[in-house]
Every structure is written in C-alpha cells, then in structure tokens.
Nucleic acid binder design. Structure first.
Lengths: 346, 346
DNA sequence: GCCAGTTCGTAAATCGTTTTACCACGGGCG
DNA sequence: CGCCCGTGGTAAAACGATTTACGAACTGGC
C-alpha cells in the first residue's frame, strides 16, 4: 500500500548502468565510456566509476548492449550429433576460438534431419547470431521450401563441400580415400573392399572417388568392391558380412567412416577372421580408445583442429566483408600407419 | 551529399515489428499481440498482420524481447571438457530438453580449471542466462575470492554432489563403487585393486567409499588395495603397472573412472596379462567402441539421460521458485555384466 | 585578454520489443 | 434513452545500454 508503482521490483535484479552512475555521481554515458573506453574519461571519475561498479557487482547487460550495437558477438553452431566425437571435437575447438575472441557459441544439433536443422537455425536467427558454423544435414543445404531467405554470414563445415552459395571448409576427402587405398595397394593388396555409410553426401562420395582413383592409378579398376553399409554400425556390419560370405573374400578393408570402422571390426570378430593376419584394415578417424585396441588401427584421420581454426577464421572474414567471393578450403588429412594393415599374405 | 542521416542504414537489416505494423496498417502493439497472443485481436487485423510478417520475412528480435521481458530463455551449461563422451552426452540430452521447452543452451567449457570456470560463468551472467547447469571443476565451487556473489538459479551436476549452497544432481557414486566391487567379490575375488584418478573430488571419493564398504561387508577390510593414478590415461597406466610388479598381483581391477579404465587396459596389454583369464576388470562408463572391444567389458555406467533429465527439471523448478529448499538427487547407476569379469581362477 | 582548440561531462535519442493506460465503439439492459 | 461493460486498437513508457550533439571548462598562443 502507499505509493503506487508502475512495476513491482521483483526481488532485486542486477544493478544497471544507472545505478552505477548514481553511486559514482556521474551520468550513465560516462560510465559507459569508462567500461568500453571509446572516449577519454578523467582519471578521478574513472576511479569512482570503477569503485561503484565493483561495489555494486555491476555486470553489463549484454542483451541491451547487443540491441544497441547491432551485433551479439555470438556464433551459432549447428552440428548433426554432439555425441559423435568428431563433432564434439570441432565444437570444443570452436569454443576455445570463441572464448579467445570474446565470442560465445550457441550450439544446436540437427540429428541430421533437414527439418529440425531448419527450425533450429530459425531460432538462431531470432537470437541474431553474428554468424553460423554449420555441418549441414544435406548437401543441398538451404534448398528446402521453408528455409529462411536470408541468413547471417555462414560457413559450411565438413559437409556440403563446394556449395554454391556459401563458404565451405572441409577435409580433402578425395585425398583421404586415395591415401587410405594407396597404402593398402602398396602393401600388395588387390582385393580391397571400400566400406562406406551412404552415397548421399559429397564428403562420402569424395572418399569413394579417392578409392577409385587409387585403384585406377594402379591398374586395378576392375577390382572395385564398393560396399555401401548404412548410417549405423550394424548396417555396416551386415553389409560387410555379406562380402565375407562371397567366395573371394577381400584381403583388405578400407572403412571410410567411423561407423563403418566399427561395423567392420564387429564383422571381423563375428567371422573369426584374424586382424591383421587374414585381413587388413584401414580405419577412419582417431579416438582415444584406439590406443587400447589391438591391433593398433592404421587410420585416416581428419584434422579437427585445422578444420575448426580455418572455418572460424573464414567466418570472421566473411562477417567483416559480406560481399567477398566465396572461399572453398580443403584441409589435408593424416594417414597414421600403425598395425592393422599388413602386407598381403599369399 | 544530400539529406543528412543520423545513422547510415548499413545494408538492409532485418525487418522490425514497426515495418510489419506499417505494412499491415496497424500499430506495433497490435502486431505484438498477434505474435504472442496475450490479448484478443480481431481476425481481419490478425490476418493482415500475418500476411505482412510473412511477406517481410519478419523474425522477432529475441534480444529486444528478452530485454523487455526480463528473461532470455537460455540456459548456460558449464562442463569441464566437451571431448569427454560423458559430458557431450549430457550436453546433447540437455539440448534436446531445451529445444522441447523453447530454450537454447549456451555451452562453455572450463578445462577443469576453476579460474577459467569463473570467467566463463561471468560471461554467461553478462548474457543474463535464466539458469545454469554446472559440472563443477572443484567441490568447493563458488568459494574462490573473485567469484560472483550472486548467481542465477543453478544446479550442480555430476560433481560437487551435496554442495551446501546449490541443488545437486549426481549419480549414486557410493552404489557405483559398491556394486562394481561386490560383483567381483561374488565371483570369488579377494585381491581387488581399486583404480581411481584422484582423491580430490567427492564423486571419486564416493566410489572408493563404496569399494571399501563392499570389502568391509564381506570381511575383506584388510585387503584394500587403493591405487590413485592421476587425471590422464597414462598416469593411471603407470600406477596400476606398479601394482602389477608387486609379488601378489591383484586378481581383479575395479576401474572407477573412464581414464583409469583405459589405463588399466593399456597396462594389462603391456604386461601381457590375459583378460579376463588372469585378471578380471570392471570398467567405468559405457561407450560405443566397447561393442567392438574384446572381451566385452563388464562395466558400471552412469545414466546420462536420467542425470540430464533430472537436473533439467530441478533447474526449471528452481527458476520457478528461487527460495525452495535445496534438493540433492542421487541417480542410480547401472552394472552391466558382460565378459571381462570372471570367477577367480585359483 | 581573447580566440581557437581540446577534453570531458551530460541530456536525450536510439535499438526493437512488450505492456500499460487510455479511448472508441457497439451491444445489452433497465 | 442513458449507462455499463467488454472488446480491441493505439500511443507512449518502459527494458538497459550506446552514442550523438551540445556545451562547459580549460589550455595555449599571440
């Protein structure tokens, strides 16, 4: 009762720049100048502002500031699946970059579903992220009917390499396929199965292209054995097991995805095939558990740190100059020769 | 030259509620009412507003709205390390919860360093997150001198279980230790090494307490063999290798962390010990690669989905009623009996 | 002592939304 | 007919920061 207020105080909320100004005996504008220092402030007022802010525990309201300045210093990150080590690795690198540059990242996952992806991106747009780092669900990213007509600056990472309307940063997947296959050929293998998860994405098709090219360069074009498993470990296992039942079993397997690596190992165990004695395996990706797996897997691995660092800086450049021509970066891959691929034994 | 403008238009930025209002021939207030529908709007004006919004591609500016409404519908998530599958799993579950409830999550990682953690939390506060989900770097979370005096509603997850000033949700780590150990005892083991990464955190100490309790309940108190490795795979490996050099080698190992699981396996391989013939192993956590590892590891695993779901709802409750008494939830763990623990063989 | 130039403080406008306070209109009722 | 009430529209005041425009005080040079 008593004086009538417009707004109930709702407990005690954070101190504002006005509170600081009042306490320091200056105007809000001056406080602002102390905080972000675009203009000179006499050292005595500066000091009293700092003291007042300290005493009140003042933290600038980032939303208010963003609203006025027209940018949020937030980058939206869209990945298919955070439980996938490759993507969580990327996210971690990006987060480190962001922290260093005074940004924050807003992570959403799409479950590899273009509809969900589109919805999650809408909400990132509503939050006015300054840029977008996207591992797209599909190669034709942005083509669906309900898709937002204008996007903030965005770069496509890992997937949809070479997209016409965006910067892209991805591994050199053709090289990945080529190097993995060549390694097996050099070891004398002629019957090399290439196990992949799908043929729906460029990055996967590129790996297969690399495989084909390596066969061709070594006069092995006729010996192609492409096995398309599916998007799960067990689909890959089943597919390669079919291959194992054939009269001429492959002497080597090149797994071009992480799932297919797991599927291949499962199948090898199920068929009691000795790895690497009876079959050689080139795996895809690296992961800490591989250090306890026997034999230590020879593998092609993407360079997550470089992928993340390059895509970050391409995005920052894009934000700075929205009309520059698109860039398409290919990051080299790493072939780590270890124990699971051996010279062919017949 | 020409008319002087206050602000250069900076390209074309997003349409505002005013643009929609103008185009629909109504006032901004009416547009707002159409959008969030707190008051009735006649159906003809409603329609023209919708049409205008559609035509302009209007997306509400979330920052402006947050500023006015006093909440952001974003939850800050603080984890030590996203490349750890346990945490990325939690984050993914939280993200799903958030999406369902119309929230977004802001993920930061602390690298298990209290200073970084504190700084990252400061920046989450500046962004005025509505709540915080924290896997704390240390048990005395919030005690450091520079720590913000007041925090938004927060719940401590996994770590720092039972903290005095926060809600906590964590696994029943004593049960985890107890069940893992009991399983080995039931198999006849008397010489059980308990391998852990550190004794600096309650959640780790609780697992050891469970181990001790299981020994005690079975009259084995004198046979305690606690091995404290360190916070890396190799530190754990080295520690357990020391144990292997002792005259009486343990017949079973209970690894109480993911790192120590990996370290134990590495040591077992290095010493050419047959697993599970010569030594039994109870591992910690579950991960997809375990399905291709031989023998299939018997393991104690935390229930990430329940941890995430419960901590989420505790946080939402806390936001709704800031003054309710603290809750301390313990989530049961799962013991999956598989092949790496066998009856003792002498 | 005066003028130009610099420094720094302040008031007020602004960002885009939500919400309050007010008003106009029309219908129902005594 | 006059009143009351419900409905729905609008103008304007927030939210909390930044920034512009202005002016006061001071400096230095002549």
């Amino acid at each position: 009762m008593g004086g009538k207020r417009r707004k109930p105080p709702a407990g005690r909320s954070s101190p504002t720049i006005r509170d600081v100004a009042r306490r320091a005996g200056v105007s809000p504008g001056t406080v602002s100048n102390v905080m972000i220092g675009v203009r000179g402030v006499r050292s005595d007022s500066r000091l009293s502002v700092m003291k007042a802010a300290e005493a009140l525990g003042y933290k600038s309201n980032h939303m208010a500031s963003s609203l006025r300045r027209g940018h949020t210093r937030t980058i939206g990150v869209v990945v298919p699946d955070l439980s996938n080590e490759f993507f969580s690795g990327l996210v971690m690198h990006w987060e480190a970059q962001a922290a260093k540059a005074g940004y924050e990242i807003l992570v959403v996952s799409s479950g590899d579903n273009p509809d969900i992806e589109s919805r999650r991106i809408q909400s990132l747009i509503a939050r006015r992220v300054d840029g977008l780092l996207i591992a797209a669900a599909r190669d034709d990213f942005g083509a669906a009917p309900g898709f937002p007509a204008t996007l903030p600056p965005a770069v496509l990472v890992d997937r949809a390499s070479g997209h016409k309307r965006f910067d892209t940063v991805s591994s050199d997947n053709v090289a990945a396929g080529y190097e993995g296959t060549s390694h097996l050929i050099k070891l004398g293998h002629r019957d090399i199965a290439c196990l992949t998860s799908a043929d729906s994405h460029v990055h996967l098709r590129d790996r297969v292209r690399g495989y084909r090219k390596a066969l061709k360069d070594n006069g092995l074009s006729g010996r192609e054995r492409l096995v398309i498993g599916g998007r799960s470990v067990d689909a890959c296992r089943v597919a390669i097991e079919r291959e194992f039942r054939l009269p001429a079993r492959p002497t080597a397997i090149f797994a071009t995805t992480f799932f297919s690596t797991l599927g291949a190992i499962k199948a090898i165990h199920a068929f009691d095939i000795a790895l690497p004695k009876d079959v050689s395996l080139v795996a895809f990706e690296h992961s800490e558990w591989m250090t306890v797996f026997q034999p230590y897997l020879t593998a092609v691995a993407q360079r997550r740190d470089e992928l993340a660092a390059n895509s970050w800086s391409v995005l920052i450049d894009r934000i700075a100059s929205p009309h520059a021509t698109f860039r398409r970066l290919k990051i080299p891959i790493t072939l780590s020769i270890r124990e699971s691929a051996r010279p062919v034994s017949n």
